[in-house]
Design a protein around this nucleic acid. Sequence first.
DNA 1: ATTATCTATAGATCTATAGATAATGC
DNA 2: ATTATCTATAGATCTATAGATAATGC
Lengths: 197, 197
Amino acid sequence: MRNRVDNSEARERVLDAAERLFAEKGYASVTLRDIAAAVGIRHASLYHHAPGGKEELFVEVAGRNFARHREGLGAAIAGAAPDVRARLRAAADWLLSQPPMDLVRMVYSDMPSIDPAHAARLSRVAYDSLLAPIEAVLIEAREGGEIDHRNPGLIAGGLVGMIESLYAVPQHVVTRGRQAMAHELIDALLDGLRPRK
Amino acid sequence: MRNRVDNSEARERVLDAAERLFAEKGYASVTLRDIAAAVGIRHASLYHHAPGGKEELFVEVAGRNFARHREGLGAAIAGAAPDVRARLRAAADWLLSQPPMDLVRMVYSDMPSIDPAHAARLSRVAYDSLLAPIEAVLIEAREGGEIDHRNPGLIAGGLVGMIESLYAVPQHVVTRGRQAMAHELIDALLDGLRPRK
DNA sequence: ATTATCTATAGATCTATAGATAATGC
DNA sequence: ATTATCTATAGATCTATAGATAATGC
């Protein structure tokens, strides 16, 4: 064999399906049969690609998911105009192009179900991937005098929570699309609700 | 029997345990055995209080949970000073005194597991209980000239998402407590990140 | 030859039901 | 007498393993 690990196309299909399902519904709500059905195979075949079973599958795709977010957020921000507003909008657009992360569910429901060491590592990765890039935007904007706040980490977290909350608004209420709503929320945060002047 | 329905103290204990567990971990992550263990009885005994089983239990306590939030939010807001900032802080304090609602998890994971009619009703109740009271604060503040925004419903949703995102911050990062962080987020939203003057 | 999938099955756990027993309220 | 709990068990579903079969890559 070429690799010790199995990196075939078939494996990718399995991981992609697992990633989407776990992201959407969380660890406990997804069964191995759900994943297998999404791929179009029998659930026993999943063990060929992930001998560690459900937990290995979850830990691996959660890591992938975070890595993808880090790259996607980084690229979105790097590709945007260099002002905070444009960068935050680009970050929000990217977040809304992916299934919701739901960090609260991860902390309260998913993490307690898996090995604590894996959970601890994923928590760090979550911060590095999701919050750090946005925090960096805020820090740079503060240095450039665009914004003025002493706790960019807190704001970054709040911002992500605000954006992701849009996934909870019922489809029939989403008139102009989630992106437009996200931009409006970002404007509100940057400019403030209190009237200027 | 006095009532057709069972409203005893024992039943309250069962519902309280179910409410806390379902709120924390979601429908699929909680088993009837978990609930029974929390109460200190055998799982079969739960059927005496909720003949409809797990789903009946969930639908009932989810409704209770929302009702409690509506009352709690209403009381917190009514008891606060009449300015937006004080009212929003009071609302945030109350939200943080309860387990997280995680509306995203409800929409993506819990609702698809239950009867659609129940899900639809709960979605309406969620809006009335959680968002409407905060939206009302914003509308009144706008009428009083305190704030200026054309979409109070959107802001209310974003605000709740922002506050609840604090449940995802690891305990060792919570230095001054979640309430202080929530107040800081509310200040940021009211005043804006961009420097005034 | 290696990789991917399948069938079959074990064993654990979950929801749910039936009927017996204990606790409580007149 | 009524209410609350228990034991025992059925039946479904879930994770996981073993070993056979099919597909693919030199």
